[in-house]
């Protein structure tokens, strides 16, 4: 299990996302209590199976952005932003809408350690 050591202040993260629908730069204030969570990698692996239906293992495909190789902070920020409906796209708002903080952390932890997604 990963240990993530973070600065103990609120972190404002700039998330730059390329994609067909939302090629914009947004500043998202992710709550510290989410950032400081240590994610369960096994749980993240199970939750990630849902992501892989659309987000193809080896990168961008059509109108679906690539999430392979994204950092933990980028993934946490993006999922938080979709869950809070800060970022558009109803599919992602729906998918992220049912994720608790622990589940977001689990997903981020899993993707961060994923070395070879082509399984």
């Amino acid at each position: 299990m990963l240990k993530q050591i973070l600065v103990s202040t609120n972190i404002i993260i700039t998330a730059l996302f390329s994609g067909q629908i939302h090629a914009n730069e947004v500043k998202i204030d992710v709550p510290f209590e989410l950032l400081e969570l240590i994610g369960d990698v096994e749980y993240g692996e199970y939750l990630a199976s849902d992501c892989k239906t659309c987000h193809k293992a080896n990168g961008e495909s059509g109108g679906i952005p690539n999430i392979h190789g994204k950092s933990m902070s980028e993934l946490i920020t993006a999922l938080y932003a979709y869950r809070e409906k800060i970022k558009p796209n109803p599919v992602m708002q729906m998918q992220a809408g049912r994720l608790s903080n622990e589940e977001i952390a689990a997903l981020a932890a899993y993707f961060e350690i994923l070395i070879n997604w082509e399984e």
Partner: peptide, 15 residues
């Protein structure tokens, strides 16, 4: 964009 999303989904689900 919705149509293009479906193309990405098709590629993803068949993989």
């Amino acid at each position: 964009a919705t149509y293009e999303e479906s193309i990405g989904w098709y590629s993803g689900i068949t993989a």
